[in-house]
Each structure stands twice: as structure tokens, then as C-alpha cells.
Design a protein around this nucleic acid. Sequence first.
DNA 1: GAGATGTAGATATTTTTATATCCATATGAT
DNA 2: ATCATATGGATATAAAAATATCTACATCTC
Lengths: 212, 212
Amino acid sequence: MGLFSKKKSISVQTIRRLPQYLRVLYDWHGYGRELASSTELAQETQVLPIVIKKDLQAIGAPSKMRAGFKIKGTITAIENFLGWDNLNKAFLVGAGHLGAALLGFSGFKNHGLEIVAAFDTHPERVGNEIHGVHVYHTAQLKSVIEEKKLKIAVLTVPGPAAQGITDTLVACGIKAIWNFAPVKLAVPPDVAVQQEDIASGLAELCAQLKSK
Amino acid sequence: MGLFSKKKSISVQTIRRLPQYLRVLYDWHGYGRELASSTELAQETQVLPIVIKKDLQAIGAPSKMRAGFKIKGTITAIENFLGWDNLNKAFLVGAGHLGAALLGFSGFKNHGLEIVAAFDTHPERVGNEIHGVHVYHTAQLKSVIEEKKLKIAVLTVPGPAAQGITDTLVACGIKAIWNFAPVKLAVPPDVAVQQEDIASGLAELCAQLKSK
DNA sequence: GAGATGTAGATATTTTTATATCCATATGAT
DNA sequence: ATCATATGGATATAAAAATATCTACATCTC
């Protein structure tokens, strides 16, 4: 019954819906609106009102009875919960097609992520810039990570190379890896890994298609 | 109690794990192995053995008591369940960074998807080829879809354009849309939409990071 | 051949997540 | 002032998913 006993664990599903709410709330905030009800958010996001209500309650978003949630305060609550209120310095390993596409995606700055370096082994990529980000040789990982104080790794290397790179990253003290390689990474328990598998989404679509 | 009454609905989570099993099974099949136990698959995929057992049972994968699941038969069962045993003709709308990256991803052919056309509105893209795929003007959507008998749409346009394109696709009779734009699409109930939101994954990673 | 072992199969339980229901209340209309 | 109403808040229920437990059995070892 200590000071931290009330820290409720928030469901993964809730976490995954938060960015969706955030986008709509940014939009409305831009128009000067101050309040939004779960019903209105539901129309925009196609999430059930009650789910939205519970999600926002879970992260302690401020609300006004009968009037809805305070847009500004809810934005702050979500950003704060996700740590998107200040930028984390990130880097990308594997500057192929997908890596280059991610480097060109400007939206990350709204999501707490700033990719400030890229790494690759191909001679024709090393030394160049992609969308304004310098590409170092992978051999320089350790020195650049330390020098630039990088915190988050985005992994877009081919599957067979992923675990090897990961071992290096762990050795460099990296605690967060966003993995786009179709391989489950083995890491120590204090390292966070987020696995993105494009095939999972395609499988869902195909399963839907077969059942309709 | 008709002929189709036994059709159990298979969980979304199960569907999302199937491609993961498939990759490992392909690999092992390539080495000539014939049987794999759920325990062995678990080591490779970091999914609990009992989950694997239930997933494979759900899609009717063949097994041998005491020896495990038949690799070849399980591959067939998964491919068949997902409809990945024959290619669906797909097309991509929005040939920007992400679109180009997806066009360059050769793995889709193993996943029942063959992207045979791309569409865009930018003059410098229209008429060119990207990774061997011709880029048509979006105005030609209807005619090319009909001519080439395209079935599945991959949507990689900017958010504000997504719903408009979607309405066109629906009017063209498209029944499956894989949407990478950060917008929930409104479609008739007989159209399957799979939403990919890169921000959801990032949110998960950031939430993990904060709790460690 | 006898027994130990690791497996799929079946069932039961627990946990998580989604959904429904009711209540108190602030707001707006009359 | 009064009343109807839409809302967040709280609680209860249902559904989905994960996890545990037990059984039967084919294979291997001795």
C-alpha cells in the first residue's frame, strides 16, 4: 500500500488508440475549440463512445460534467503519458527503401521522435544524406550513439541482420528498439522492443476478405 | 445446424500470429524438416507453446501425436486460410516515399499479393515506373482497375486525400483496402478495410519506455 | 516388453478487454 | 425557477483471449 500502489496498468489497446484521439484533438484545437465529448470523438474515430470515455479516464484526462473533455488538457495528458511532450533523439539502422521512407516522414516530430542519424553498410549510401539525415557506417554505431547521446533505435535492416545489430545496440546501452525486421529480437528485460510486422496487417485484411 | 455451422470465428490475435509461424515453417521446410512441435516453434517465435497449439488447432493444421505438427501441411493450412496460396492482383494509390518503399518490397509475392499498378497525381511521377511498376494518373483508376481486374487497394496517400480516393475505389467495386493513411475510412459493410497506423506502434514503444 | 517422456487434444480457469446499464450533474430551454 | 437532456462517472455484465490443467497416446530408452 505504498505511494505507487495506485499506478494502474493501462491496456495496450488503449495506448494504441491514443494517437488517433490526439490527431483529432490537434485538429479541433487548431480551430479554437475547447471541449469535445466522447460522442463527438466517436463520430470522428469510429471508436465507441464508451471506449473513448474509459481510455481518457484511464490517463486522467480533465473533463467537465455534461460538457465533455477539455481538448487542451486532454492533449497534454496524452502527450505526457506517451512522453511526446519532449523530443527523444533517435537513429535509424538500415537505410534501404523502408528506412528512407521513414526518414522522409516528417510526422515523427509530433510524436516525440527526432531521427538525427542513420547507419548502413552499403558504400553507396554511407557518407550521403537522406532527407537531410547523414548516413554513417554501421561500424561507427557506438561512437556516434555516445557522441550524440542517442536513445531510441529504429531498425530497418534485413531480417538476418537484425539480431546481430540488436546485440550491438544493447551493448551500447540502447533501451528502446522499434523493430521493422520480421524477426523476434532477443533482448535483456530492461530493453523495450516494439515489433512491427507488416504481414500481420495483411493477414488481417486477407482473413476479412475471405469471410465476406 | 447446417453445413457451415461449424465455422468458428478465429481471433484477430491468432490471425496476426500466423505469418510469424509461416516464416519459421518456410525456413524449416527449406531444410527438409517434416515435423515441428509447438515447443520448438515457441522458442523461435517467443510465443507461448499453448498459444501456438491453439492457433494451429484453430485453422485445422495436421499433426502427429507425440511428434508435433506436420510442417508442410501446416504451411498449406495457413496459406489456405489466409488465401495466400494464389496471388491477388493489387494496386497502390499514392506513390510517395512510403508507397515507393512498398513497391520495392518483394516479400508480398509470398503473401498472396502482387502489386501490378500504381497511381498518383504528381506529374513527375505519372508515366514513370517505380521498381518496375507503372504509375498511372489517379484519373485513370476506374479504367485500369477494370482492364486489369484489380482486387485489392493499397492506400498510401496523404490523410486528407484518403476518404475521397476511397469513395472512388468503392464506386469501382473494390472490396479490400489496406490503408496506411492515418484516417479512419468510411466504407459500406461489404468492404474490408485494414488500418495501419504507424503511430500506434510508436505509442506502444514510448509507453513501454516510460514504465521501465 | 515395460516404463518414462514429450506431445497434441480437450477442458477449465483466469485475465483482459469491450460493452451495457444506471446515476449524479451541469447546462440550456421554457 | 423548473424541467428535459446529454454528459462524465461508476458499476456491472459480457465477450474475447490468454493461460493452466488434465488426459491419452505414440515414440523412445532401457
